[in-house]
C-alpha cells in the first residue's frame, strides 16, 4: 500500500505545481494592466484625444497618432484583405503540393520578424518614393496582416458544409456565384473575426513603422507623407527624458490596450452572437 500512497502523493505534488505555475504566469498580465490603469487613466480626458502634441515640457494630445493609426490600418486592410481572402479560397479549393507548400510558407511569413518586414517596405516603397510615408507603413502592416486573413478565410470556409454548394449548383448557379453568394456569406463572420484580430495585432506594431511611417507630430491625412501611430508615439515618448511625455505615453498605452482588448472581447462575444447558424 505504501507504494500506491507514494504515487498518489507524487501526483498531488505535481498537480499543485501545475496550478501554481499557471497562476504565477498570469501575474504579469495583472501587473501590466495595473500599471496602465494607475499611470495612464489619469492623463486621459477629452483634450487628450482631440489635440496635437506640444513641445516639451508640455505633452499635449495624441490626435496625430490616432489619425495616423487609422490611416495605416486602412491602407493595410486594403492591401491585405482582398488578396488574403482570395488566397484563402485558393487553399480550400486546391489539393496539391503547391497548396501544401503555400500553407507552410504563409506560416513562415507570419513568423518573420516584423523588423524584417519594415526593411522590405523601406526597400520597396520608401526608397523609390524618396521619403517616409503612411503608404510604406501601411504596406508593411498589410504584409503582416496578410497571413492572418488567409488563415482565417481558409479555416472558416473549410467548415462550410459541401451540401450548401451542391444546393447552389443544383439550382443552376455557377462556381463564381456559388462562392460569392452562398459560401462567403455563410463564412463572413469567421472571416470578419480574423480580420478584426489582425487589425488588433497590427495596430500595436511598432518595429515595421520605425523607418516607414516614421512618425509625425503634426496632423497628416496624406498617404505620401509620414504619419504617427499610437505605438510609435508610445515608443518615442517612453524613451524621452520628459516626465509629461512619459505620462502621455502611459495614457496612449492605455488607449491602445483598451482598443486591442475591446476588439478581442468583441470578437469573442460577437463571434457567438453573429455566427451564421449552419
Amino acid at each position: 500500500m505504501g507504494e500506491v500512497k507514494l504515487r498518489i502523493l507524487k501526483d498531488r505534488i505535481f498537480t499543485f505545481i501545475i496550478y501554481l505555475l499557471t497562476f504565477l504566469s498570469v501575474i504579469p498580465l495583472f501587473a501590466i494592466l495595473f500599471s496602465l490603469v494607475k499611470k495612464g487613466l489619469g492623463v486621459i480626458n477629452l483634450n487628450f484625444f482631440i489635440t496635437l502634441p506640444k513641445p516639451p515640457p508640455d505633452a499635449g494630445g495624441i490626435l496625430n497618432a490616432l489619425v495616423g493609426t487609422f490611416l495605416l490600418v486602412l491602407i493595410a486592410s486594403i492591401v491585405s484583405i482582398p488578396i488574403g481572402i482570395v488566397a484563402g479560397l485558393f487553399l480550400v479549393e486546391t489539393r496539391n503540393r503547391f497548396a501544401n507548400m503555400l500553407r507552410v510558407l504563409i506560416n513562415v511569413l507570419q513568423g518573420l520578424p516584423s523588423i524584417v518586414i519594415g526593411i522590405i517596405a523601406y526597400l520597396w516603397v520608401v526608397k523609390p518614393m524618396g521619403g517616409f510615408s503612411a503608404l510604406s507603413g501601411g504596406i508593411a502592416l498589410g504584409i503582416m496582416m496578410l497571413p492572418m486573413v488567409v488563415k482565417s478565410t481558409e479555416e472558416t470556409i473549410k467548415l462550410i458544409p459541401y451540401t450548401l454548394r451542391e444546393a447552389s449548383y443544383a439550382l443552376g448557379a455557377d462556381y463564381f456565384t456559388t462562392i460569392f453568394k452562398v459560401v462567403l456569406p455563410a463564412g463572413i463572420s469567421g472571416i470578419l473575426n480574423g480580420i478584426l484580430l489582425g487589425i488588433a495585432r497590427i495596430a500595436g506594431e511598432t518595429a515595421p513603422l520605425l523607418f516607414t511611417a516614421f512618425g509625425n507630430p503634426y496632423l497628416n491625412f496624406n498617404p505620401a507623407k509620414p504619419v504617427d501611430s499610437l505605438p510609435l508615439l508610445i515608443f518615442n515618448y517612453a524613451m524621452s527624458p520628459y516626465e509629461r511625455w512619459q505620462n502621455a505615453a502611459w495614457g496612449a498605452s492605455f488607449v491602445l490596450i483598451a482598443f486591442v482588448l475591446l476588439i478581442n472581447i468583441g470578437v469573442k462575444l460577437g463571434g457567438r452572437r453573429w455566427r451564421v447558424k449552419l
Binding site: 458544409p161 450548401l164 451542391e166 444546393a167 439550382l171 448557379a173 456569406p185 463572413i188 447558424k277
Partner: peptide
C-alpha cells in the same frame, strides 16, 4: 449547358440544406 439543364431538373438532397444566410 449544365446551368440551363439544372434549371429544368431540380434536386433535393439527403440533408436539408437551406442557405443559412
Amino acid at each position: 449547358n449544365p446551368i440551363l439543364l439544372r434549371k429544368k431538373i431540380g434536386m433535393v438532397f439527403q440533408r436539408p440544406n437551406p442557405f443559412p444566410t
